[in-house]
């Protein structure tokens, strides 16, 4: 990972992350909540994937499991060619350090460090040096040139999130997971962030997975995966905001209060059962 990856923006170059028959169950007995019901998904290298779904659909859980932040109850997970199953804390830490980048909704930066120090923190933790050329590229991409010496409390919310994007990009991870990165921002700042993410995919071949419930945000992705009640229910390639909204409406209509059997995985019908809202805790 010493030179920028600018090649292969196309699909088929192999999966950057993969989940096979992923189940996630919280609690047991009466209090049992099934967050993911046998999800299988492949996130292609060099593509921008959005995961959408209503609250409690399990979209955040899916991302957390795939990123190695949460453990799967059952199923197989890989990032690049590393299997997550059976990795201990040390292994997962190393994986996060070397192969994963994160952008969270809020509270993304360490208040004690400057913007530049925050950006370089993952590399510093890993004991690596930044490639100065790539660092410059990243800074230029997010447009932070004159703000590098500032501390987070001297930056606006949009600027802070741009620093977080730069931090995720600078170590050129296998995959960047972004959890509602624009959730806390006004629409202009949000659009800026999304453009940076888009550009890093298009221009630098970065793989990005983003959880969102904003159709406009999802329209920046190459592919949108729709989740409901712990299952993948639909998928949209080359989405537009209208198409995404349309699909969401259709999914809402499809949701009916009829009981859905806790049946075998792979079933493609979706009911928004009352129990699904209980999984809101995983959001």
């Amino acid at each position: 990972m010493t030179s920028p990856v600018i090649d292969t923006p196309a699909a088929g170059a192999g999966a950057a992350a993969r989940a096979a028959d992923l189940w996630k169950v919280y609690g047991s007995g009466e209090a049992q909540v099934i967050a993911l019901r046998g999800v299988s998904v492949e996130l292609e290298r060099g593509r921008f994937t959005a995961i959408m779904g209503p609250s409690g659909s399990g979209k955040s859980t899916l991302m957390h499991c795939m990123a190695g932040l949460d453990s799967a109850t059952r199923g197989h997970l890989t990032i690049g060619d590393t299997a997550l199953n059976g990795l201990g804390d040390a292994g997962l830490t190393r994986l996060r350090r070397e192969k994963v980048g994160f952008i969270f909704q809020q509270f993304n930066l360490l208040p004690t460090l400057t913007a530049e120090e925050n950006i370089l923190l993952p590399l510093a933790i890993a004991g690596r040096k930044a490639d100065p050329q790539w660092f410059q590229t990243v800074i230029d991409t997010v447009g932070l040139g004159d703000r590098l010496g500032h501390r987070p409390n001297q930056l606006s919310g949009g600027q802070q999130q741009r620093v977080a994007c730069a931090r995720a990009l600078v170590s050129q991870p296998e995959v960047i997971f972004a959890d509602e990165p624009t959730g806390n921002l006004d629409s202009r700042s949000g659009a800026e962030i999304l453009s940076f993410l888009r550009r890093s995919v298009t221009e630098h071949g970065q793989t990005i997975v983003m959880v969102t419930h904003d159709a406009n945000a999802a329209s920046y992705a190459d592919r949108v995966i729709f989740l409901a009640d712990g299952q993948i229910v639909d998928e949209l390639l080359e989405p537009t905001a209208d198409a995404v909204l349309d699909r969401i409406k259709r999914l809402d209509v499809m949701s009916s209060p009829t009981a859905r059997p806790d049946g075998p995985p792979g079933q493609r019908t979706v009911e928004d059962s009352p129990s699904a809202t209980a999984t809101g805790a995983t959001e």
Binding site: L69, D89, A90, T93, R94, R96, R97, E98, G101, F102, F104, F107, N108, L109, L110, P111, L121, P122, I125, A126, R167
Partner: peptide, 16 residues
Amino acid sequence: TRELGLLRAIGLSRAA
């Protein structure tokens, strides 16, 4: 707590 979580997420080990 959140800061620590963030640091752990971006690769700070337990020992560190």
